[in-house]
């Protein structure tokens, strides 16, 4: 049994909220830079160059890449040999978000109640997903998610007869409807299988996969490649103003499902696909 004081978790979460908002992960940044070279539209290339410049300014001035610094999504994998001490772990995570958003000059975008809509003033609460895993470590990922793209995400309860073509149709339809609203070029996370809520979570987790990592399952790898190619044929392009780069990355995560169902979730993210991970 290893003891970890939750104060260490607060400190990590605070730091990751800030880092994620000032810097893109190197893999995501590399895809954006590559796109600025390959984009066929002159206006599209100009926009991608501006986005590159935006990243440089954000890093140099410690100013958020995007003013929508998101709702903080926190994935916590707790080793079952770990004993968390010093207080309630969820409160410690929320405190980390509170301090990160305050100390990092990040936007407070959360309202207490979805209907009465009064801002909480500190960007809490975050959405926290816990998993218990073997081992004696705690692995925390902070993924601040903007809502321009979150609003364009969709969940489809397909039927088995829809098959892989139905999955493709659902993804393409979601991307087309998102269009310029989701600040393309996008990152696309696709969940297939599980049930209603599991599928949505898979799609969110698919956005965390490094852009250069491919699925180990040949069938899924092929699906990822085909979907990305088809999305980039839509012509939506950077900022939705036409071009050959509409998505920078697409990943699929699957889970066993019921004999009667084929759930598909599509989580759209803009190019500011932010996430930071720390292991305690």
């Amino acid at each position: 049994m290893r003891e970890i004081n939750v104060a260490a978790i607060t400190s990590c979460v605070r730091q990751m909220c800030m880092d994620a908002n000032y810097h893109l992960s190197p893999d995501m940044q590399a895809r954006l830079f590559e796109a600025a070279e390959t984009e066929q539209s002159p206006l599209g290339r100009q926009i991608l160059e501006k986005l590159k410049e935006n990243l440089e300014i954000a890093a140099a001035d410690q100013i958020p890449i995007c003013q929508d610094t998101g709702m903080a999504v926190v994935f916590v994998e707790v080793g079952q040999e770990v004993h968390l001490t010093g207080g309630d772990v969820s409160s410690a995570i929320q405190e980390g978000v509170r301090r990160g958003y305050q100390d990092g000059y990040l936007r407070k975008s959360i309202v207490r109640d979805p209907l009465t809509r009064v801002n909480t003033g500190d960007n809490t609460p975050a959405v926290i997903h816990y998993t218990i895993v073997p081992g004696e470590q705690v692995r925390i990922t902070v993924a601040p998610k903007g809502f321009g793209s979150e609003n364009k995400s969709r969940l489809f309860m397909l039927v088995p007869a829809d098959g892989v073509d139905g999955v493709k149709k659902a993804v393409l339809q979601t991307v087309r409807e998102a269009g310029p609203n989701a600040c393309p070029p996008m990152a696309v996370g696709v969940g297939i299988g599980g049930n209603f809520e599991k599928c949505a979570c898979l799609a969110k987790q698919a956005l965390l996969i490094p852009t250069d990592q491919q699925s180990e399952d040949p069938q899924i790898r092929k699906l990822e490649q085909e979907l990305l190619a088809e999305i980039n044929k839509t012509g939506i392009g950077p900022a939705g103003l036409g071009g050959t780069v509409t998505a920078l990355a697409l990943h699929v995560k699957t889970y066993p499902t019921h004999i009667a169902g084929l759930p598909v979730a599509v989580n759209i993210c803009c190019h500011v696909n932010r996430h930071e991970t720390m292991v305690l």
């Binding site: 935006n54 958020p64 900022a239 803009c270």
Partner: peptide, 13 residues
């Protein structure tokens, strides 16, 4: 008009 989405740092200048 559209401003470039996701370019908040640049636009602030």
């Amino acid at each position: 008009f559209a401003a470039i989405g996701g370019a908040g740092a640049l636009l602030s200048k």
